[in-house]
């Protein structure tokens, strides 16, 4: 299996195959499943993403039980209908899709973790926008997900994808980079350009902390997915324009790992730092979990033994 971006890119160039094809073959070899089974499984993941993106922006949208998030994807849909967005409709479509999907996640709906649930809006945000923009068929959309997965596996094995270990850069940062790399391939770019897009996308989100208000995957997670999708498209466009990151992708992943390891615990999904530790963040937590000790008779706090 590919453990570095360099190996993946070199193999794709040497064998004259797109990254998605290398990923499909690796999965077949590992799982001993026929190609159709692997393909269909990814197809079902695609269906779940499509449904989440649609549900989050339909009607009045979805709302979480806490009331912290929900309905923003609908606001964007209506705003886009007026036709006067500042950054253009493609970008706002990506943002709407990303937020819709993550609002569904916050409302405990069914999503596909890409790579995590907290970052599950970023890749659908990029993918379904390109579906319209580039006219991608179902097969191409499934290929997009295999490409994203190939790059994501390398990030996950070298740096990690959990906010609790690496901060938000490991979640939305990884998702943004995976989406950027897959976007380049879907647009006809080279494997090397995909790798550059990945490097640019991670570099731009390096150091992003995980600071969920009340410890919930809502604030600021839903909007972070918007920036993940936007950043992914920007990085992909830069790479397609021939811009390189100068710092190679594997070194960027190494930097992300190092930054994550050195983040104080309060910035790694504990809900104790950043936005969670603002006066308003603390007040929201108190209103959602009033007097934690009364909430559950059997829950108790102990010192370490």
């Amino acid at each position: 299996m590919y453990l570095t971006i360099a190996e993946l890119v070199e193999d794709a160039e040497r064998r004259q195959l797109p990254v998605c094809e290398l990923m499909i073959r690796q999965e077949i070899e590992r799982s001993h499943e026929p190609r159709e089974a692997v393909w269909e499984k990814m197809g079902r993941n695609l269906d779940v993403m499509q449904q989440a993106v649609a549900d989050g922006a339909a009607g009045e949208g979805v709302h979480s039980t806490t009331g912290l998030t929900g309905g923003d994807a609908v606001k964007l849909r209506k705003y886009r209908e007026r036709g006067r967005t500042l950054s253009g409709d493609v970008m706002m479509q990506a943002v709407q899709n990303a937020m819709a999907c993550n609002e569904v996640n916050a409302a405990m709906g069914v999503i596909c973790a890409t790579p995590t649930a907290g970052s599950s809006g970023t890749i659908p945000g990029i993918l379904f926008t390109l579906t319209d923009r580039l006219g991608l068929g179902r097969d191409q959309q499934i290929r997009f997900l295999f490409t994203a997965g190939a790059f994501g596996l390398i990030i996950a094995n070298n740096a990690g994808i959990a906010g609790a270990t690496g901060g938000c850069q490991a979640e939305v940062g990884s998702a943004s980079a995976m989406g950027a790399a897959a976007a380049v391939e879907a647009a006809g770019g080279t494997p090397r350009q995909s790798a550059e897009a990945l490097a640019i996308a991670i570099s731009n989100l390096l150091g992003l902390i995980c600071d969920p208000v009340a410890g919930l995957v809502e604030l600021p997670c839903v909007k972070r997915n918007a920036i993940g999708a936007g950043n992914g498209l920007i990085a992909a466009d830069m790479a397609l324009a021939g811009i390189t990151n100068k710092i190679p992708p594997d070194e960027v992943i190494g930097a992300m790992d190092d930054v994550g390891k050195n983040l104080p615990r309060k910035f790694r999904e504990t809900g104790l730092g950043g936005l969670a530790d603002t006066p308003t963040g603390r007040r929201l937590k108190e209103s959602i979990f009033p007097a934690k000790k009364n909430l559950s008779a059997f829950r108790k706090t102990e010192s370490a033994t």
């Binding site: 990923m23 690796q26 999965e27 499984k41 990814m42 079902r44 993941n45 779940v48 979480s64 569904v104 996640n105 916050a106 409302a107 405990m108 709906g109 069914v110 999503i111 596909c112 973790a113 890409t114 790579p115 995590t116 649930a117 907290g118 599950s120 890749i123 997900l145 295999f146 994203a148 997965g149 190939a150 994501g152 596996l153 996950a156 994808i161 959990a162 906010g163 609790a164 995976m178 919930l216 995957v217 809502e218 999904e269």
Partner: peptide
Amino acid sequence: VFDIIGPVMIGPSSS
């Protein structure tokens, strides 16, 4: 690849 693109699950946090 399905560790990365997946699992299909109920939100809000895969961890």
